[in-house]
Simulated scan of single mutants.
Amino acid sequence: MKNVKWVFVAYSLGAILSMFMIGIAVGVKSFLLAFAAILALVLIMGNGFKMKKKYREQGLL
């Protein structure tokens, strides 16, 4: 637990929640909720990968 980067844990949990929301949106047949969940997933994962690149360039990973 010493080398855990908690910011990446938060990003991964946000991405998982977005994936759950896509499933819920399909279940309730809500196009708007599905679109919002997909958009959130893309934004969260994109920011996570961008931060990972930044950490790698700074030698923190």
Rank of each mutant, 00 (worst) to 15 (best):
A36P: 01
G48C: 07
K5C: 00
V4F: 01
R56K: 14
M45Y: 02
N3Q: 00
A37T: 07
M1L: 00
G14Y: 02
F31C: 09
I38Q: 04
K54N: 07
F31I: 14
N47H: 09
V4M: 05
M1T: 01
F8T: 05
F20H: 10
I16H: 03
S30F: 14
I16A: 08
M1K: 00
S12I: 06
F49E: 08
A37I: 06
Q58W: 11
A34F: 11
F49T: 06
F49A: 09
F31S: 13
K50C: 06
S12Y: 05
F31T: 15
I16W: 04
K29R: 12
F49Y: 09
A40D: 04
G46L: 03
G23S: 07
I24K: 15
N47S: 10
I16P: 01
G14I: 01
F8I: 04
V9R: 07
A15N: 02
V7A: 01
K2A: 02
M19D: 06
F8W: 06
L61R: 12
L33P: 04
K54T: 07
G59W: 06
A25Q: 08
V9S: 06
G14A: 06
K53N: 12
V26G: 11
W6T: 04
K29I: 11
G59E: 08
M51H: 14
L33A: 14
L17D: 11
K2R: 00
N3T: 02
V7D: 01
L33T: 08
K54P: 02
G23P: 03
V42Q: 04
S18E: 09
K5D: 04
G27Q: 11
I24M: 15
K50T: 10
A10R: 08
L39T: 07
V26D: 12
K2Y: 00
L33D: 12
V4E: 09
K52Q: 10
F35C: 10
A34R: 10
Y55E: 14
N47D: 06
I16C: 04
K53W: 07
G46E: 03
G46T: 04
A25F: 05
A37E: 08
L60Y: 15
L13W: 03
L61C: 15
Y11P: 01
L43G: 02
K50V: 09
K29Q: 13
F20N: 12
